[in-house]
Nucleic acid binder design. Structure first.
Lengths: 95, 95
DNA sequence: CGGCCTGTAACCATATAGGTTACACTCGTG
DNA sequence: CACGAGTGTAACCTATATGGTTACAGGCCG
């Protein structure tokens, strides 16, 4: 049921992609074709991974864009689920 | 490789949830706790499914919020991938 | 000291989700 | 026919998010 607090995709990006290749944020941002600030925001958890960014990452690191966006979904959903009880929604399934 | 044009999650929502229960857009919106316009925008493909909306759907229809957001990711990614060639990104994997 | 890398603040443009209100259209039914 | 219900959507507002540029302060190192 994936009860764990999922890491922000930016952390994963830094640990799995930048550090192994000894890439600086500045260099990686240039290679990805985005500003240093944009990449920094992601790496430090201040921004999410957009669909376009997922495609950029898939090109640069030869991965699947899906995997990056799925990580983002897990992260977003974990936070959205925390407010589940505060939403007033009627159950319609077993109506 | 999932090369098919994924349907907009709003279509799926209408066909799999509203129609089987004979739910009107007006009633479903009220039950979900959102405005009729918000639900209508989703159903007609003018808006995506947000994390919070995914949780609402999961409550109302006793489904998983993840499945709704995953559908949205598939849809968004399919469109983002169409611009893959127009992005200037350096390959860093086999650097 | 001086250069490089970094995080980040300030400010901008753009896009999206969501709300309210209002309008025009289509149906079904009295 | 007339009316109400349901619908899509335009107009307008707010809040939030991505992303860009520029600039600054701090850390690290030769």
């Amino acid at each position: 049921m994936k009860m764990h607090n999922p890491p922000h995709p930016g952390e994963v990006l830094r640990q799995l992609c930048l550090e192994p290749l000894n890439l600086t944020v500045t260099d990686a941002a240039r290679s990805l074709g985005v500003s240093r600030k944009t990449l920094s925001s992601i790496l430090n958890g201040h921004a999410g991974i957009s669909p376009e960014m997922a495609v950029r990452l898939s090109i640069a690191f030869n991965t699947s864009s899906e995997s990056w966006l799925n990580q983002q979904v897990q992260y977003d959903l974990w936070h959205a689920e925390k407010n589940r009880k505060s939403l007033h929604v009627d159950r319609l399934s077993a109506a």
